[in-house]
Design a protein around this nucleic acid. Structure first.
Lengths: 262, 262
DNA sequence: CACGGCTACTCGTATAGACGAGTGGGGGAG
DNA sequence: CTCCCCCACTCGTCTATACGAGTAGCCGTG
């Protein structure tokens, strides 16, 4: 292996006051953007970059860590550093909770995934009663105890979403909602059967970097943020009957919303 | 300065196979989470941490860089490392484009900001004609040339959002829309005056780490993702009459949407 | 008292070296 | 020929050192 990456990467500018490791990161980023390294391609090894630029290894690693932080590349121990492929994104349409979808039986996640040719899985299912946090209690109109349903969603074996539902206990206790499998149409269908006809949902969307536990649960690569979505379901009497707190791998999702121009 | 951070931070676990710099990051993160360092507080200096843990400075810096990547802390050259305050978030309600808001005169951004007690600014305004990218052209139903309006929004001097609007040129040329200041109610009001009554908007929401140019434009701290929002406005004939491509500092925004349970 | 410079402290950048651990292929043993 | 081991190459972790540059407070000079 004598060929250097010089054909693909330029030389440093010693007159620039930009730090060397930033210049190297710039070179690599530009090469990726221009397609000189395509998705899944292996970057030159640290040793090759050290040789090419005539810098120390830590400087090269520093440059690469910038690109990792930007989510552009990922390192594989013992193998190399690779350009991160953009995973296929899952689109969440804003009508995904329309009543007509509930009448089919299967859950929204399952139906959508199979339509897209992916293998859906639900995992780490957990149902329990808890005292709600202050925030959740306030959103639920002051509920003192809540039923909590947690679960993780996977597509083709890859975890993409971790969701937690909160329901006022007086409403959910001793109903199918408190069962691990609430039955066809999910908990929204059960809520309507219990007389809580759903009228509207409110969703709050935030984005941030994941906490370490989220990195683990969603097997997130470096440089991938999470989308944090908090949905509140209201019945026709204006009562908040469910809150769903969802953390999604941001590289796996596009959220789509329809807004009327009222 | 003889007191060490030992009162606030524990000791390393030499039996753990977790890397030392990760353990140190864990300690600091936990101390922040537990409120032992509050927002805006200064972390122990690198030198103090070196002393406390008995490790080299690079190991300490490595630990701190993890926290920076998580958006938990930020370093100030010559001063210290500080716990990042959570900035007040700006909430974007889903009715922000309702017709009734347009009738006031001021732009949505200005009205909202002043209501929240912030000083709004618009900046880097640029209006020009361009050939659209393939994606934009497709979304606009195959427009060959478009009017492009770019601008940056700031709150209390802090840049929070960079927006680019695209309109089919045949629709916008020689209209107030092509003026730097399109007049009261903004371009949506002008579109309606031109006979394009707006019927609905579609919004696509993504989150990702910023490109270097975005870091610069939005003055983003390390570990802050961006929310990328693409809105398409449709008139009553179903024609896409505008696309607004917006990149927002994720730590400054919460998006709120209303979904009917149809 | 006011100003300016010195200094001590902070983080930023870079070097050189060492060892560890995961991966994969080539070559030797059977 | 097949299997397995070893080795070369990869990235991961850590040490020790050096100098640069931004900040702020002290202190002496004028």
């Amino acid at each position: 292996m004598t060929s250097s990456p010089s054909a693909l990467l330029g030389a440093l500018d010693p007159t620039s006051d930009r730090a060397v490791f930033r210049q190297i990161a710039d070179h690599l980023r530009e090469a990726i953007d221009k397609g000189r390294f395509t998705e899944g391609a292996k970057l030159p090894s640290e040793a090759e970059l050290v040789e090419h630029y005539g810098v120390s290894r830590m400087t090269v690693r520093n440059a690469i860590s910038i690109l990792q932080g930007e989510g552009l590349v990922h390192a594989e121990h013992g193998k190399g550093v690779y350009v991160r492929p953009r995973p296929p994104v899952r689109r969440l349409a804003s009508d995904r909770f329309a009543r007509r979808h509930r009448e089919q039986g299967k859950s929204a996640f399952t139906v959508e995934a199979e339509a897209a040719g992916s293998r859906p899985e639900v995992d780490q299912l957990e149902v329990r009663e808890e005292r709600p946090s202050q925030d959740i209690a306030a959103r639920l109109g002051g509920a003192r105890k809540v039923l909590v349903r947690r679960r993780r969603y996977l597509l083709d074996g890859r975890p993409v979403e971790f969701a937690t539902s909160y329901l006022p206990l007086d409403l959910a206790r001793n109903t199918p909602i408190a069962q691990p499998n609430p039955g066809p149409g999910g908990i929204y269908a059960r809520l309507e059967e219990l007389g809580h006809r759903l009228e509207r949902f409110e969703e709050e969307v935030r984005a941030r970097m994941p906490a370490p536990a989220e990195v683990k649960t969603l097997r997130l690569a470096a440089g991938v943020p999470v989308i944090h979505l908090i949905r509140t379901a209201y019945d026709t009497e204006g009562r908040a009957v469910e809150i769903c707190d969802t953390v999604m791998a941001a590289d796996a999702y596009v959220l789509a919303y329809q807004l009327p121009a009222t």
